[in-house]
Design a protein around this nucleic acid. Structure first.
Lengths: 126, 126
DNA sequence: CCGAGGCATCGACAGGCGTCAATCTCCCAG
DNA sequence: CTGGGAGATTGACGCCTGTCGATGCCTCGG
């Protein structure tokens, strides 16, 4: 299978123009970047696994082994990325996972995972 | 480094011990971090959308607008994360997406995203 | 009204990561 | 055997980010 001597221009001829455009890739990367952190993954898991489905910052600092400002920062990132909701009740701020947020992301990744043969991915709108 | 929880027992009684453990979270975060980059997302998309399902580095530098070392670096990251395969044929190195890699990741995220009603993913499924 | 406590914000620091220029290695063509 | 080209590696630089201590805000209890 090494018979493309004349077609050596394969490297330069294929336009390869498909795929996500720059801003779509940037947006998806930012969403993924919000999850690409052990502390935030564990934080999400703790909140999701809570008996009431929500947790305040002081509940998370212990299990996570992080300081209160750091936990607050991670919560803000996850809220900003659309994975958590923040509800201030009295002195405490309760965070809860947004149902379907992770599933939506999983669906985007799964739909992009069908290369099949006819360039299925392309612009897989979010 | 690892501090010992002094058991402040602040506001809630729930110990919140569930969730992913540290190493699982770290591993998943590392996989996600490999995808959390616009250049790598577009690279994957370009390779997956290629007519032959594979592409060499010199095919990617143009569409990505990145230098050859940078593209090679991103390819290495994706190969290391289990999203791409590398096959050296002659002078060129052809990269192809591993079928099911993205789907597996999507499945992990999706399964963790089903809190159903109470606690869901991870441990303690009663 | 005043003290206490939870949380967000600020400033600072260290580490990681993306990027490129320069260089090296390897393989093929002649 | 020699030249050329593709790709990987190295070193350096700058930006981004995770982390913490200190501090301010805001709400509740007394």
């Amino acid at each position: 299978m090494l018979d493309q001597p004349t077609d050596v221009a394969a490297c330069a001829s294929a336009p390869l123009a498909g795929g996500l455009d720059v801003d779509a890739a940037t947006a998806l990367a930012q969403t993924l970047k919000a999850l690409a952190d052990p502390a935030r993954l564990r934080l999400l898991s703790l909140v999701a696994g809570s008996s009431t489905g929500e947790a305040c910052v002081c509940d998370l600092t212990g299990p996570l082994g992080l300081s209160q400002p750091t936990v607050s920062h991670h919560c803000k990132v996850l809220v900003d990325a659309g994975f958590l909701t923040r509800e201030k009740r009295g002195v405490w701020a309760y965070y809860a996972v947004i149902p379907g947020a992770l599933h939506t992301l999983a669906d985007v990744l799964g739909s992009a995972a069908v290369p099949a043969d006819g360039r299925a991915a392309s612009t897989a709108r979010a």
